[in-house]
Computed example of a mutant assay.
Amino acid sequence: MSSETDLIKLYSARILALAADIPHLDRLDSPDATAKKRAPLCGSTVTVDLTLENGRITGFGQDVKACALGQASASVVGQNIIGRNLKEVETARDQLKDMLISDQPAPKAPFSGLEVLIPAREFKNRHASILLCLEACLEAFKAASQKNCA
């Protein structure tokens, strides 16, 4: 397959539609924690604001400056992140990483929509951008949990 065909396959209509419709793009006024993650290779960044209650995400805002793949990932995460606990977010991140790096299945529900990014397996330089939103969520979640315990 030519590299041009590979890129066309990678940037499917579904990925582009997700990238064009990212939920929760408004930052939170009073988050419990904020985390910003950057993919050094491509420069994509995602900043996440979270509020927590009883160990679950109750508020979520994000600022996404990423390629279409990072945007699509942030879109799926944004659609499903409210109500999740730390373990669920860690599991989603680990499953996404395994999907990309180890050819494992797509993450399970509620993050099963990330399967749209399976074609990105072949593009290792895009993996960090795809993982940004979940990585930022985990960092913010841990910071908020520590703050709430202090």
Rank of each mutant, 00 (worst) to 15 (best):
G61R: 05
G70R: 00
H127P: 02
I8F: 03
K108L: 08
R14A: 07
L50Y: 06
L86Y: 14
A39R: 15
A19L: 02
L10Y: 10
L100G: 04
L7V: 02
A17V: 00
R14S: 05
K124V: 14
S112F: 05
Y11I: 00
R38G: 00
E4G: 02
L7Y: 10
L50H: 11
K124Q: 12
V89Q: 10
A140G: 10
D103N: 14
V77Q: 07
L28M: 12
V116C: 03
P105C: 09
G61A: 00
P23E: 01
I57V: 13
A68S: 15
M1R: 01
F111T: 11
R121S: 13
T51H: 09
R56G: 00
G43W: 12
N125Y: 10
L114M: 04
A144Q: 12
L28T: 15
R38C: 03
L18S: 01
G61I: 00
T45F: 05
L7P: 10
S112H: 12
Q146A: 06
K37P: 02
L18K: 05
A17L: 00
Q104R: 04
A13R: 14
V89M: 05
L7W: 07
D32M: 00
M1Y: 01
A143C: 02
V77K: 09
Q146W: 00
P119G: 08
L69H: 13
L86R: 13
L132K: 11
L100H: 04
F60M: 03
L18D: 04
M99G: 00
R38F: 02
N148R: 13
A13F: 01
R93T: 07
D63I: 10
C133S: 13
R14Q: 07
P110A: 02
I8N: 15
A35Y: 13
A120C: 03
F123G: 10
D103W: 12
V76M: 03
A143T: 09
G83N: 05
P40L: 14
S75G: 04
S2M: 05
R121C: 14
F123Q: 11
T58R: 13
S112A: 12
H127I: 06
G70T: 01
L96N: 10
R38A: 01
V48L: 09
S73E: 09
